[in-house]
Design a binder for these strands. Structure first.
Lengths: 202, 202
DNA sequence: CCGGAGAGTGAACGATGGTTAACCTGCAGC
DNA sequence: GCTGCAGGTTAACCATCGTTCACTCTCCGG
């Protein structure tokens, strides 16, 4: 197993638009973690996926856990930031806000099935402090949804809205399980329709 | 083929209503696997959870993988059998069949959150042959749903129904994420309502 | 009373895999 | 040209953990 040509080129004349080695590692790791689970993936595997040996990882990350922690933190941050942003941009109508949130989540899930998979499968593999941080971010994202759902269901209490939000996440985040069944646009439309129906039910 | 009858060996012990040691182990393992992930749980942990040492497990299972394999196979079998049964008992009306399937899945998910969690998180930790067997059962269960959904949406093709089925599973199987928010009955009603709305959307 | 099977124990073995150490290399900038 | 740092490499270290082994101990059937 020797290094192939292209990996060398990027190291030589650091192309600005080409992702850095660090980003390559994170992306490759996400893919592998999603396929086999983080604990079943060795540092050597991640290295091999980007054309280096295992210990080279330690030039870019403090360790395997740090890699996973950064991965999950980034996902949670992207979701929270993106969700908040879309709601703010959707005006004051809760129905429009809901549609914006759904569109965002569907888009994210279809664009990053590996991240979605790792996000909830490997949270338990995190050190306590990191897991707590990720959960804090997740909770805030959930509350963004809950705020919108609460305005759509004035009679429902927050707990019910939370259950509802998690259910919608589960619905939309099912994409890794149904990959390759339909083309992207059709899947997006179907999931968005289902999510909206589920959000409004009762 | 180590699948023996349910509680046959309880006859050996005086108190027959207590589950056999083998069943205790499976149940404790399911709980631990759900909490930390199967690869993070040691044989010693499972043993300790039922009051024995690690190696004692080997009196009841060929190994750790065999334990996980039996766990996942049982879940898949229970789902397939239960789903098929409920559909058959629901008569010819596809709407009634759908309600029966939803009620069954909701009931199962609320009754066995740990099994639901392990079922889709630790499938990747299985040996190839076992994983293939589990996936075969899962596929058959999905097809039970697809058959019902296809009759509700005559214009939709099988692929769309499959996406729909996975989305509904995701919705209902979100229970481990929203545990403790509402009481069981309220959660069941909410999820069933959302699932039905999602199933009928468009 | 006796012997065998089932169940459990503590100790040891071996593989796996994360991490570290020591060493190499090639461009950057005085 | 020297020097330094960024990034890689190989080899070794070490902890963890699944698994096996050689024993007990305790029922129970004959």
């Amino acid at each position: 197993m020797t290094t192939t040509g292209p990996a060398r080129d990027t190291a030589l004349h650091a192309d600005a638009d080409r992702p850095s080695r660090r980003e390559q590692i994170l992306q490759a790791a996400a893919q592998l973690f999603a396929e086999r689970g983080s604990r079943a993936v060795g540092v050597d595997d991640v290295g091999a996926a980007v054309g280096v040996t295992g210990p080279a990882i330690y030039r870019h990350f403090a360790g395997k856990d740090a890699m996973l922690a950064e991965m999950l933190l980034r996902i949670s941050e992207r979701l929270l930031a993106g969700g908040s942003e879309r709601v703010a941009a959707a005006g004051a109508d809760p129905a429009a806000q809901l549609r914006a949130l759904i569109a965002f989540q569907v888009e994210f899930a279809l664009e990053n099935p590996a991240l979605i998979t790792v996000h909830d499968r490997d949270l338990v593999s995190l050190a306590d402090a990191d897991a707590a941080q990720v959960r804090r971010l997740q909770r805030r994202y959930v509350e963004v949804w809950v705020a919108v759902l609460a305005r759509l269901h004035p009679a429902a209490d927050a707990a019910a809205c939370r259950v509802r939000a998690h259910a919608i996440f589960g619905l939309i985040n099912s994409t890794p399980h149904s990959a390759g069944q339909l083309d992207r646009a059709a899947t997006a439309a179907l999931l968005a329709g289902m999510a909206e129906a589920a959000a409004r039910a009762w």
